[in-house]
Amino acid sequence: MSERETIITVSHLVKKFGDFTANDDLNFEVYKGEIFGFLGANGAGKTTAIKILCGLSKPTSGNATIAGFDVYTQKDDIKNSIGYMSQKFSLYEDLTVTENIRFFAGIYGMTRKDIKIKTQQLLAKLELEDSAKKLIKDLPLGWRQKLAFSIAIVHSPKIVFLDEPTGGVDPITRRQFWNQIYEAAAEGVTVFVTTHYMDEAEYCDRVSIMVDGKIAALDTPQGLKQTFEAESMNEVFIKLARVAVNN
C-alpha cells in the first residue's frame, strides 16, 4: 500500500476535567478520503474528543492537527475546513428546505451564485424538488437526515464529523444514508463517524474503539475481528468494553 496522506493527526492528546481524565493519551491518524469509525461506550470520551477535533475545546496537553491546522492556535481555520452533523441538532425545523441550505451555505461564506447552483444540484440529487418549500419539521425523519448530511458537506469541507447520524432511522433510509457517505468519501471527503449500530462499524475503512478515555483498538473491521477472534464487530465491541466494566 502506498503512503497515504494524513488529514487528522493526534498525538498524546489529553483532556482533563478537574480530577477526571476524559481523554487519556490519544494517538491516531486519519487518512484523506477514508471513512473512520469512532466507537466507544457512553461516557468513554468520544464526545470530548470530537469537540477537540472540531476546534470547540482545547486539549489539556498533547497535539492535534486537523487538515494541517493546529487545534490550539488555528481554531477558525479548522472550523472552515470541516462539516458537522449530529442526530440531535442538524437543521432548523421552522425553516424550509431551501432556507436551510441557503443559511448553512451562507455561514461558510459561499457566494450567492454558488449557493443557487448548489441548491439546485442538491435538491435534484435528493429528489426533493417538490419539497423545496416545505418546512423541515414536515419532512420524514429519514429525509431530514439525508438532507442534513448533504448540507453538512455543502461547502466541500475536507472532513465531515457525523455524530450518531442514523439514530432512529428506518433500515432502508439508513442504508441510503451510508450510500451518501460512500459517495462523499469517493469524492475525497474524509468521514469521521460515531454510531451505536455495530453493523455500521463494518462499513468503515478503519474503526477505533474507545474504552475509559483510551483508544483500546484501532484497525480495519476485518483486522479487529481477527485480533479478537470475533464473528462480528458487535462481539469485538462487547469483548473490549466488557473488560472495562469488569475492571
Partner: peptide, 10 residues
Amino acid sequence: TTGVDAVSRK
C-alpha cells in the same frame, strides 16, 4: 436502549 452503547444495551 436508544442512544445507549452496545454493552449497556446487552
